[in-house]
Write a protein that binds this DNA or RNA. Sequence first.
DNA 1: GGTGGAGTCTCGCGCAGGGGGAGGGTCAAG
DNA 2: CTTGACCCTCCCCCTGCGCGAGACTCCACC
Lengths: 272, 272
Amino acid sequence: MRRGLTIGEFATLTHLSVRTLRRYHEAALLVPATVDPFTGYRYYAAEQIPSAQVIHRLRELDVPLAEVKSILAADPERRADLIAGHLRRLEAELDRTRAAVVSLRRLLRPDPENLQVELRSVPARTVAAVRGHVTLEDSTRWYDAAMAELDAAFAPADRTGPPGGRYANELFTAGAGAMTVYRPVREPRARGRIEVVELPPVDLAVAVHSGGHDDIDVTYGRLGSWVVEHALAVDGPIDETYLAGPRDTPAPADWRTEIGWPVFRLTPGGLA
Amino acid sequence: MRRGLTIGEFATLTHLSVRTLRRYHEAALLVPATVDPFTGYRYYAAEQIPSAQVIHRLRELDVPLAEVKSILAADPERRADLIAGHLRRLEAELDRTRAAVVSLRRLLRPDPENLQVELRSVPARTVAAVRGHVTLEDSTRWYDAAMAELDAAFAPADRTGPPGGRYANELFTAGAGAMTVYRPVREPRARGRIEVVELPPVDLAVAVHSGGHDDIDVTYGRLGSWVVEHALAVDGPIDETYLAGPRDTPAPADWRTEIGWPVFRLTPGGLA
DNA sequence: GGTGGAGTCTCGCGCAGGGGGAGGGTCAAG
DNA sequence: CTTGACCCTCCCCCTGCGCGAGACTCCACC
């Protein structure tokens, strides 16, 4: 008595491995049409072949099994959305890959010029700011939203300098931490998530990173080397000032980001 | 007494996690400048920052740790080769991803037309062939080499039909199996790896797959459905005939591959 | 109606490249 | 000297499979 295709037959038909089919069953992704209650044998129906192939394609796109499951469970429009979302993520990943290639090439040829580092004592400033606690993953989205809010609240005429952010070290170390996005303006006032914040004074070692943020860690590293070599210690949140950012010029190559690292001298005498 | 940067400081400087740095130490990828023999504390030197960043970039490109290690150990020219090799692999993977996207789109809209399947009794044929046992991974390379040898041995005038291959089912099921690549020619003769082979007669369910081989499994699946629905069973090696392949036309979209699945009727009466 | 071999079952281990936490030792500022 | 932030090792967990062991089952052939 034929109850359907055995797992092996179904495997040849779909070019999936027997092992993989069992795993998909276990994950409730592709449940055999019938399972013999006594022997446990799995039997598949020919109608399941298309599903198997869709799963196969999604897996080739590195869609996690859990997501494949929700895609298959969703109705067609929602499904298209989910797939489009994943394709966007693939696209973003491709961008990151390209950036990594470029950055790698730069890293492998000896550094072009020396990094200009400046020690700067920044006095306390009262600014309009949005504060929050976010994970490194969400930080970009959070930053964009916060900055959009600041931009909306203060017209270009009210702004007295480029915007910036202060990022707790734990954000990089532990993957989550406090973030402050601020904008110096003529008359700071609270509105929505925006607060009036007095930024404490800091002594910063400052360097400028030119280009997109994909290899900003290289500048971080070079600034770090400089700080270590000059017998300074690092403390407190990092300050980034966006001299030129996505809101000013679209091409990442034109961006200029000032990185400020709070430092203090290990040897007595204070900052020069 | 300062012995260097602690792992935490080095982590913030390089944007790597403490965890990851420990793992890189364990893998002998990035060994701390000094390790306190009593406490086990790791201390890094500022000079190690560039190495850390190169590793970081390579990992972003999904280079396995072992390979990163050999890249770092290699001299500059060899290093460039290794990296170029990896970039080629990334490129190939990207092609596969693109193909999967295209195939997925096709799969998600209801099938365009019905697959034309033909039952065909193929008599025994004597052909020039190269036989071997290969893994699925190597199959493409092996195929290309074997076909090149056949092409070189028999001029176009000697050929009496399109080339083909017979692939044992285990190739797909178990990832390795017997392959035969053949070409029907006027006067088959052995030379090098080429043998004169008599292909046994087979009853085939035949369908034509148009386009590249990235989604040939879809046609396999549809052919399989057809075979199951028509109460036929599958047995013996698959036969593929390359009506139009890479040697005939460069664009994969123009390729035409005949898939022949050996079948026999489950119900008595033989093939019609 | 056996019997042998291919096919299938479950279970457990291995891989990379980490994440997360337990339990305990160290470092440096106050 | 305390305290809190670091750091240490060890172990288990995750994903998406591959591989193998040991035990059943299926089916064709004799």
